[in-house]
Simulated assay, not measured.
Amino acid sequence: MPAPAARRCPWWVPGLVLAATVAQLAVAAFVPGIDRFDGKAFGARLVAYPLLMLLVPALWWLRTRHTAPAGPVPWGAFALVMVPFLIDVTGNSLDLYDAVAWWDDLNHFANWALLCGGLGLLLARRLSPTWVLVVAVTGLGAVLAIGWEVGEWLTFIRNGTELGTAYEDTLGDEVLGTLGALSAAVVLALTARRRPSPTA
């Protein structure tokens, strides 16, 4: 059963998330003299983040452009996939990574919960029973966590000041990301169980 119109996420929410992210990335990449942005590959992020944020909507569009979609455009799922990039950039803009000791750990858990929650919403109708959804979303989150850490290492850790602590931090970040994905998967599974069946 489709969600009531009042509960649907409007298109401008992911649009606003994308615009706020790109604006902060542009400041980080082009405004000189801001120490908290130094050595963190913001030139690469200015290219990579918007592309990654638009990847899921683009794949959804490619999959549905020749067939009628099963429901309304999943703007809410797209927004959940995009929000972690905004949170990451905002954390850098506010210098939270250096000022708050636990901020990085919270980010890896919460951002993966949001990201995998959005991906899980897109997969939920195609995966059953619910344990398959839990395994798929958790596994996808683990793979993405590994990929993210590899990307960080390639872009700024291997030649930066964080190399000495990178191994321990990487392991912790991968575990936290996977736990965030598992949390999202469990919430999706519980929600799916409570949802009335189409024949009800």
Score class of each variant (00 low, 15 high):
159 N>H: 11
19 A>I: 08
170 T>A: 14
2 P>R: 15
85 F>H: 14
12 W>T: 10
51 L>P: 12
139 G>Q: 06
164 G>M: 13
115 L>V: 05
96 L>W: 03
24 Q>F: 08
46 L>D: 14
139 G>V: 05
85 F>Y: 15
191 T>Q: 15
182 L>T: 07
170 T>S: 15
193 R>Q: 10
106 L>I: 00
187 V>D: 04
30 F>P: 06
197 S>P: 14
104 D>E: 05
131 W>E: 14
178 T>G: 07
196 P>C: 14
17 V>T: 02
49 Y>S: 07
71 G>Y: 03
155 T>L: 15
19 A>Q: 03
90 T>R: 01
121 L>R: 09
67 T>D: 11
194 R>C: 05
103 W>D: 08
90 T>F: 00
75 W>F: 10
65 R>H: 08
132 V>G: 00
39 G>K: 05
180 G>N: 12
141 G>M: 10
130 T>D: 06
36 R>F: 04
86 L>T: 09
46 L>S: 11
164 G>P: 15
184 A>D: 03
93 S>W: 01
86 L>K: 09
109 F>Y: 15
176 L>G: 01
36 R>M: 00
103 W>C: 04
46 L>M: 13
185 A>K: 00
1 M>K: 11
141 G>A: 08
108 H>W: 02
166 A>S: 08
103 W>A: 03
151 G>R: 12
6 A>Q: 12
125 R>I: 13
22 V>N: 04
52 L>I: 01
169 D>S: 05
154 L>P: 09
32 P>E: 01
167 Y>N: 04
77 A>G: 08
150 V>G: 14
123 L>P: 02
116 C>Y: 01
141 G>D: 07
119 L>H: 04
67 T>P: 05
159 N>Q: 10
101 A>S: 15
113 A>W: 08
168 E>I: 02
14 P>K: 05
197 S>M: 09
50 P>T: 06
137 V>Q: 07
48 A>K: 14
182 L>D: 15
50 P>L: 13
189 A>V: 14
106 L>A: 15
60 W>A: 04
177 G>W: 01
105 D>C: 06
24 Q>M: 13
65 R>I: 07
112 W>R: 13
119 L>T: 03
42 F>D: 01
161 T>A: 04
155 T>F: 03
47 V>S: 07
156 F>G: 00
110 A>N: 09
61 W>K: 12
64 T>K: 09
80 L>R: 07
38 D>K: 02
59 L>T: 15
10 P>V: 07
146 I>Q: 04
98 D>T: 05
154 L>N: 11
12 W>R: 13
154 L>F: 12
40 K>A: 04
190 L>C: 15
1 M>L: 09
35 D>C: 02
42 F>T: 00
15 G>A: 06
21 T>A: 05
55 L>S: 11
35 D>G: 05
160 G>M: 04
46 L>A: 12
44 A>Y: 05
187 V>M: 11
109 F>M: 13
16 L>S: 00
70 A>R: 12
30 F>V: 07
79 A>D: 10
70 A>L: 11
